[in-house]
Design a protein around this nucleic acid. Sequence first.
DNA 1: CCCGCTTCTTGATCAGGATCATTCCGGAAG
DNA 2: CTTCCGGAATGATCCTGATCAAGAAGCGGG
Lengths: 253, 253
Amino acid sequence: MRSDTRAGRLPDPPSPIADDGDAVRFCRTCAFAGACLAVGYGKPELEALHCLVEHVGPYRPGDHVFRTGDPFRAIFAVRAGTVKTSLVDRDGREQVLGFYLPGEVIGLNAIYPEQFPCDAIALENAQFCRFSFPAMSALATRMPAVQQHLFRLLSKELGTASLLAGDHSADERVAAFLCDLGERYAARGFSGTRFALSMSRGDIANYLRLASETVSRVLTRFRSQGLIALEGRQVELCDPQGLRRIGESLLSG
Amino acid sequence: MRSDTRAGRLPDPPSPIADDGDAVRFCRTCAFAGACLAVGYGKPELEALHCLVEHVGPYRPGDHVFRTGDPFRAIFAVRAGTVKTSLVDRDGREQVLGFYLPGEVIGLNAIYPEQFPCDAIALENAQFCRFSFPAMSALATRMPAVQQHLFRLLSKELGTASLLAGDHSADERVAAFLCDLGERYAARGFSGTRFALSMSRGDIANYLRLASETVSRVLTRFRSQGLIALEGRQVELCDPQGLRRIGESLLSG
DNA sequence: CCCGCTTCTTGATCAGGATCATTCCGGAAG
DNA sequence: CTTCCGGAATGATCCTGATCAAGAAGCGGG
């Protein structure tokens, strides 16, 4: 599993960490870092965490990590790659709920219904840490730090979910989307101004509740205004300040 | 506090419970019922719950229960009345995040930022159970049922938050809004087909990301189609099935 | 290298809902 | 009763972004 045949020369230097051997380095950027590090490496509690973590993957682009209706047993931290979550209503229309980068957690919205309310689909080759939820909440009972962490993760996601709901112009949405992605990449140790959009224009549009044509147009205009540089799915935020100003109503208040 | 001068003859027979004396009856419909009842009345654990619950109120229409930026110390279960939560962006535009009926819980989205990210404003005379959050999470550590309950509440709210985000027509939004309110009233023991809208058309519109004129027009049309009866803020769902059909894309998938 | 597919871009037109403006209604105060 | 005022209903117009349509560009496979 260390080095497989697909180890070609992918042109992504700021690529997500896919190195299974470097658990410590990965864990520092993971959303569970707070919980994991709180217990301290070497202590017996860490054993408990390790017992309930299971590395799964790799998944290839388009693979499902879980599907709508699957019984809820675990949450997943993204180790490598990117994932989108989406739901499909009965007339078959897809609805993208979110994109998740390395270090972020998916599956939290399945706790209440006790089954996954959405699909999770890998956008790139992806790997995960799988946390058994029953084991996790049992652990949380014994370790306040873990419980606190779960509460925070849930509450945080709650905050971001309500942002998309506002009525905002296409410009605001796209600008905020780019800023948000940049900040999240930066928080995980990648470049926050230069990265690849791992999702299609259609997925972006769907997520932002716009038509893909509109996304194209806005991106093109942003480029002509010097706010971004764009080449296929590679994007550079040339004027993060300006973008932030445009999207600010979605970003902080 | 029991009977003050404003005890006029308000025409709302299906009024929320405002009777301080009937704790048991109220608690059965409260969102914490599962947690509270799980420990069983009379057991020592109940003492713990009672210690961290504090009844607050009454608040008058327009009063703030908490404000954006207030330090987060507690979550609130609505005992009586209705509340809206909303945030105000820097250009002063209000954004209604949700309406909360008796038995529902507000403040969960403050856990992560550790301060309230929104205002909570009473729409009617309102009272609350205030749960100290540090005490609550300490209790959750000792009582898995409470912890489980908090996780579920958070996860549930996460689910509803993502529904509004979809791109839906004005008709769908209004129909789903009415159905949702009805179902929530029904779940708390009130009539699910005949109730008063405690919020203004403007608030509804804001919540649904529509203009208030649009809400007016849709309601008028629904009435002329026989889907609802409407008189001021009193509404009756004459054809809940039909409404549900219209709004179904927002209601379950 | 060409083919066929998907994704992306760009243009032209259309429509749903926002906005502006006016009127109507119901309750509170005088 | 009249006046006043905010919320609500209704009409007229405008604008953003969706939709329809067509072409360009990337990409994997033969």
